[in-house]
Computed example of a mutant assay.
Amino acid sequence: MPPAQRRRRPVDEDGDLEEDARPRRRQHVEASDAEQDEEASDDDAGTNGASTSVDDQMAKKLVRYAISCEYSRTAIRRDGIKERVLGKQGRSFRRVFALAQTQLRTIWGMELRELPVREKTTLHEKRQAMKSNAQPKSGSGAYILTSTLPDEFRSASILTPSKVPSAEQEATYSAFYTTIVSFIWLNGGELSEQKLQRYLTRLNADRMVSSERTEVVLKRMERQGYVMKKVDRPPVGYDGDQTISWHVGPRAKEEIGLDGVMGLVREVYGNPDDDAFDKKLRSSLGIKNRPLTERGEEEHGDVGMTNGM
């Protein structure tokens, strides 16, 4: 073979080899990119899974926190949830709150309900609100636990009083604050100190309620949000005595509601099946026929069931 041909052949072979190598390198690069994409998707899935697991744990922690607060009748506040449950994950509030609601409803038969905003009752508070021109708050940022059980499971034989401190003391306390709240609502939502004392005297509860002093029980009711005690003092420079009045608190509005007051009155009067009685009762409470909610209840809340766990 001539020398020129011998020299040309290796060049041709090398050229063939180079042409074959180029697509192989491209295939290798494409395969590497695909592997990186798969690894990235696996990392995202792992991150989402870890986030879901963290949210689920925080939701369970929120459930435990809510139940512990409810036993002491302490309002479950948004700030407390962020401090004691969420920690540095404050932005996860809505997501964790929704998960906790699902767990409470499906497992515990309860749900968290936001308490209404405290109303301005005294003349001084109303004047301050008018001067500030501030927009009213849409929510109080405080919650309590309420039962979601059907009516047939809400009987006293099923939802017995809590054993802390004792079943008898718990039943007495529940009956007392429900009665006082009913008195206030039946008097147009405001009860003077003089009228309250007259009612307590008739109940033989002006000094003691079970084994506790009445003033101690009333202060506890005020602290827990069942009632609000308002002291209206005369303006500076004017003579006159201060007036004390009692109003329905935010917890009572959500836990007892007008339906609870109507149930108590009907029970006292032997559950009369009389339209005239029902009409008089509604008139005393200052209400008319109200539309029912999705749960078949009237708009102002349930019968008090939150502490009969």
Results as ranks from 00 to 15, higher is better:
residue 271 N to W: 15
residue 237 G to M: 04
residue 195 K to L: 12
residue 275 D to V: 09
residue 272 P to K: 01
residue 302 D to W: 06
residue 233 R to K: 14
residue 274 D to F: 14
residue 199 Y to E: 10
residue 271 N to T: 04
residue 301 G to H: 07
residue 184 I to M: 05
residue 218 L to D: 04
residue 211 S to T: 07
residue 267 E to D: 11
residue 216 V to R: 08
residue 186 L to Y: 00
residue 253 K to D: 04
residue 303 V to I: 15
residue 243 T to R: 10
residue 263 G to D: 02
residue 207 R to Y: 13
residue 230 K to L: 09
residue 217 V to S: 04
residue 212 E to F: 05
residue 209 V to S: 12
residue 190 E to C: 12
residue 266 R to A: 13
residue 269 Y to K: 03
residue 302 D to Q: 06
residue 198 R to D: 14
residue 252 A to I: 01
residue 193 E to G: 07
residue 232 D to E: 15
residue 256 I to G: 02
residue 184 I to Q: 02
residue 274 D to R: 07
residue 228 M to P: 07
residue 202 R to F: 10
residue 298 E to K: 04
residue 187 N to M: 02
residue 284 S to P: 02
residue 215 E to Q: 06
residue 212 E to V: 03
residue 212 E to H: 14
residue 227 V to Y: 10
residue 215 E to D: 08
residue 242 Q to L: 11
residue 224 Q to K: 15
residue 234 P to K: 09
residue 255 E to N: 15
residue 282 R to D: 10
residue 286 G to Y: 00
residue 280 K to I: 05
residue 276 A to H: 10
residue 239 D to N: 13
residue 228 M to K: 11
residue 214 T to V: 14
residue 263 G to A: 07
residue 278 D to P: 05
residue 191 L to G: 07
residue 298 E to N: 06
residue 256 I to C: 08
residue 294 E to D: 12
residue 192 S to F: 08
residue 281 L to K: 03
residue 260 G to M: 04
residue 302 D to G: 08
residue 182 S to L: 02
residue 236 V to D: 12
residue 244 I to V: 15
residue 191 L to P: 11
residue 259 D to G: 04
residue 252 A to R: 02
residue 226 Y to C: 06
residue 274 D to K: 14
residue 239 D to K: 15
residue 239 D to I: 05
residue 255 E to I: 06
residue 304 G to Q: 03
